[in-house]
Design a protein around this nucleic acid. Sequence first.
DNA 1: CTACTATAAGGAACACGGTTCCGCTTCGCA
DNA 2: TGCGAAGCGGAACCGTGTTCCTTATAGTAG
Lengths: 195, 195
Amino acid sequence: MTVNDGDGGAGPRKRADARRNERTLLDAAAAVFVTSGVEAPVRDIAARAGVGVATIYRHFPTRADLIIAVYRHQVEACAEAGPALLAGVASPYAALGRWINLFVDFLVTKHGLAAVLRSDEAGFEALHAYFLDRLVPVCGQLLQAAAVAGEIRSDVDALELMRGVGNLCIGAENDPRYDARRLVAFLIAGLRLPR
Amino acid sequence: MTVNDGDGGAGPRKRADARRNERTLLDAAAAVFVTSGVEAPVRDIAARAGVGVATIYRHFPTRADLIIAVYRHQVEACAEAGPALLAGVASPYAALGRWINLFVDFLVTKHGLAAVLRSDEAGFEALHAYFLDRLVPVCGQLLQAAAVAGEIRSDVDALELMRGVGNLCIGAENDPRYDARRLVAFLIAGLRLPR
DNA sequence: CTACTATAAGGAACACGGTTCCGCTTCGCA
DNA sequence: TGCGAAGCGGAACCGTGTTCCTTATAGTAG
């Protein structure tokens, strides 16, 4: 799943040129993702990095691995923002709303990521797993807090909600007629208990 | 866009074998769509129909044309159900909910249709256009009625809502952990005016 | 019934993107 | 400086959409 990235992993240290190529590839992938989306042809990324295609496969066996590596920092930041919001914002419901907004902003600014996130094609399980492992618990915590506070219904499943929000973000890039944030806000509003 | 299907169109009548093949192709496509989804390989559909691949392209220049032809009846039925529900159900909001359910049921039972409906790849504009032309006005009517009745907010755009609902249906086929209907219900509930 | 022509069919050929394989290069170390 | 192993590049392979060209056939006139 995760690659032996030079220092974090267990095995023997990789060669210097290999580590250098990995950095180069990450930068190239990030750049290409911005312009052509996360489903850009492997050859394009290789060309941008000035390496052969096999080098990509050697470092990132599946596209999911590459995507995860490129966005890991931002996903971590999003995950860590959950508890912080819960602690710092007036009501759990407000914290939930803010956190969901963070997630939506992240998704809609990553061209094609939302689409690939819900793809059921083989090879994306790792992406699925990573996002869900990292974010669903955070979402669950926020949901639970809001439910305990009596602000929303208590039968909402975090996984289901995350998938729904992710789906609503599909195709939201640069289309002025489709405002994913607005729709997500409706969805979250629909969780409120009638009062 | 639409094909000269034997009788409806304007041009001179097509040859008998051509019309026969068109029927055969529609049946084959419908069958293959059920088992392999609407993105099944062209060759599979051709093989099932016992024709060459070029025959498909001759009758249905783009995949969108084929999909439209296969599901036209059901889309029409859905469109016609809108006014009927509005006339026969107690409140406009209830009619809206029922109609949305019809639409969701249609989408989730057509393997991969929701995904392709929102695809931005070239060649699917026709599909987009057909669905939206046919269904958005109906949805708009229901929304307007519910808004006039004071049941929901009045700033909801039909196109946006339809796209949101369609997105929520993506990947809902045979996945017990994801209930598109439930999420759509939350979304619709989120349109209600606070009272 | 036969001959002719426009229409349509079939399948090979092409384009394109993901994936794998193999001979060559370069690193790291003694 | 020499050597083994790790790493590299790009050609080759495979599956799928799309087009082209040759052949077959429906429809019609004689």
